[in-house]
Write a protein that binds this DNA or RNA. Structure first.
Lengths: 208, 208
DNA sequence: CCGCTGTTGTCACACCTGTGATAGCATTTG
DNA sequence: CAAATGCTATCACAGGTGTGACAACAGCGG
């Protein structure tokens, strides 16, 4: 095979440059010429790897989807088995913090993902990835809650997904500009209310 | 005075056209020429009323901010005084549903607002409005929760804001594509958990 | 009536975009 | 060595954008 240069690595470099541009200027600022400049390559090279503009966008959204998927499945659900009360809260917290912009790496991914999610409303090419992610997220969280024997896991998962989405949006944009500690505290408060207060009608509260 | 035509009405017509365009194509599709076409006016006329592109954008974000502000203060907090349990949930629910995309009018406003909030991350001209809105929202909800004698109103308001933001994002984009009933049910479940279960550490759960 | 003024309508210009086409380079393979 | 192939680098073109400039029109004031 002829592999003068690591093709996959090159593609990842370009996508990384695209991410930086997405953070700095938003999706509408992501032109081929700017990506070329940011990645230090010639526009001809960029077009050699992703021959379309559209293709580059799809590759970028796919990459962020892949990373988020990894984060989603990093902590297996079965480690939660048997946990109740505060340990359960802590375990879920550590896991779900994977999805929040609590450090620079996650912040970039959150921003990029948010841009694509919003763009997907109008541009169908992003939908396969964003819809798949949404479905996976609901599924995985629901499963985790079921393991934790939470009453009505699907509904509680829905709430958690909403909280996560709201926190990301608020912290990533200057809408609310939440600090990292504020995000984590809010998530923890929510998980605590789900796991230790058991607002479900029939089940009595559990104390450890 | 020479008022051949209602200037304010004209401006509102143009902004309405801009909203339709925002819904259909997103913020990046909002060009002067397209707004002109959508509003049925000549581009010269549009530039006569809003002489800048930037100016039109600011007028649009200001308008959506004004409407959301109206919705926020439509139900005064003092009607909540003395309410507990399910009636308190219902009162808050009716009020906060003002902010969710549960009908076409609110859906348009939610979409427009979401576009501007996300754009504000990168474009500072939207920040005054979006930041003011975020602050007002937190303040008003915190006040309402205080009236309802909720434990730690600021933190609970933070959670509610997150839930609202997440629900709007999920229902407005194809990320999760939540239905109207699903949104309302999730909000209600959350309010119920805040108001009737009192997850505060010290107080024991209340059953009615 | 004329003229003032708010409103429309149309140019042209510079800038940026994606893209087709194509030539030149570099390096590996035969 | 020669050839093939992956890669880089440019050119030109059509389309869209905001904007400056300015002419043309409409209706009210005098």
């Amino acid at each position: 095979m002829i592999a003068r240069i690591d093709l996959d690595q090159r593609r990842k470099d370009v996508i990384e440059a695209a991410f930086r541009l997405l953070v700095a200027e938003g999706l509408s600022g992501l032109s081929l010429r700017k990506v070329s400049a940011e990645s230090g390559l010639n526009i001809g090279s960029v077009r050699h790897y992703f021959d379309d503009h559209r293709n580059l966008l799809v590759a970028a959204v796919t990459e962020v989807g892949r990373r988020m998927g990894k984060r989603l499945t990093r902590y297996p659900a079965d480690v939660l088995a048997g946990l109740t009360g505060e340990p359960a809260v802590e375990a879920l917290q550590v896991w779900l913090e994977e999805l929040l912009p609590i450090d620079e790496e996650r912040r970039v991914e959150s921003i990029v993902l948010t841009e694509f999610i919003v763009a997907a409303r109008v541009n169908p090419i992003f939908r396969p990835v964003t819809e798949q992610m949404a479905a996976d997220m609901r599924q995985v969280i629901t499963d985790a809650l079921r393991v934790l024997e939470v009453h009505d896991p699907a509904e509680e998962a829905e709430r958690i997904v909403a909280v996560l989405g709201g926190l990301v949006l608020d912290s990533v944009t200057p809408h609310g500009s939440l600090g990292v500690e504020r995000i984590r505290a809010t998530l923890r408060a929510h998980l605590r209310s789900v796991l230790v207060a058991t607002p479900g009608a029939d089940a009595p509260p559990i104390d450890d």
